[in-house]
Design a protein around this nucleic acid. Structure first.
Lengths: 157, 157
DNA sequence: TATAATTCCTAGTGAAAAGATAGGTTATCT
DNA sequence: AGATAACCTATCTTTTCACTAGGAATTATA
């Protein structure tokens, strides 16, 4: 029950891209530098995000990426669905009718999975990229909260 | 973001075990037959469930398993935690302080994961084994809902 | 008391998914 | 022309998943 690096990196990348504009797009190189994510891996994450319209790209020198729609219209759930597939704890609730089993999923656990899926989507679709950006500016005003000279690793999420 | 077979099989096995009693325990063989799960694999799932006190075992001939506590006191979340580890979409919210990162997880996504974790636990701990048993008797009174002569696979969840 | 039925313990294995790397092509700015 | 960047496809390594396997210990019962 873990979010994979695809989803986590994707969200962090999108937060960076949200700061760019059509006339001043951000390059993969730049995202890679600030977020410490392999350029080559990032490339692979941005392809599906572009396909789904969440980002647009500008090719050639001085090119890069910028959002394909307003930050308030892109949710964390959108990004995860694009990069990891349907948000569903088991296949029979992923929205594809063909994945339902012979009992029409009338097994004792079906209700649990259904409710779980709904709860997860409610949270993930409840946060937009804009919310995350606001969160960031909030953090910058309270840097003192950062643990000093810590042995702990940089955040990987 | 999927529940693995360990969790899913474990829940189905526990529903069977919940029907047994201390004086009439259910054997792995029997669970395996009705739930179509490999005996050897089931063995491995029951070990940790026993360790955590959710089941008790009776060794030797006519032995088997029965619940270690009342069905209403065992939740789906309990079973999943025992078989799959902490219910946490990312490591930094799994309850282990050592997994928190250098920024004390003050990254823009932390709030999302925290809320997601809480929502997931609320659902999963909101269903007890007893609830699932009740669900089952409910189904048996409306078998007509089962899809007739379907090509669909048997339920694997 | 032998035997069959059962849990218990540890190890191994095959396939798939995750998490990247790598090489090269195409487009665009300066 | 050259540098910079996106784009495309393939490959590779590591880890996890899902299961298999062999045998030891325990206990009812014939």
């Amino acid at each position: 029950m873990k979010i994979s690096t695809r989803g986590r990196y994707g969200i962090r990348a999108m937060v960076e891209i949200a700061k760019a504009t059509a006339s001043n797009p951000i390059a993969i190189r730049s995202i890679s530098d600030t977020q410490k994510i392999s350029e080559r891996y990032l490339e692979q994450l941005l392809a599906p995000l572009k396909r789904d319209g969440y980002v647009l790209s500008v090719r050639g020198a001085a090119g890069g990426y910028h959002l394909g729609k307003p930050a308030c219209k892109i949710t964390v759930g959108d990004i995860i669905r694009t990069l990891e597939g349907p948000i569903a704890p088991v296949d029979c609730v992923n929205g594809d009718e063909n994945q339902k089993c012979a009992f029409n999923c009338q097994c004792v656990t079906f209700k649990v999975w259904e409710k779980l899926k709904i709860a997860m989507e409610q949270i993930l679709d409840g946060f937009s990229l804009q919310d995350l950006l606001n969160e960031e500016t909030e953090f910058s005003t309270k840097e003192h909260l950062i643990i000093q000279s810590s042995q702990k690793p940089l955040c990987q999420n």
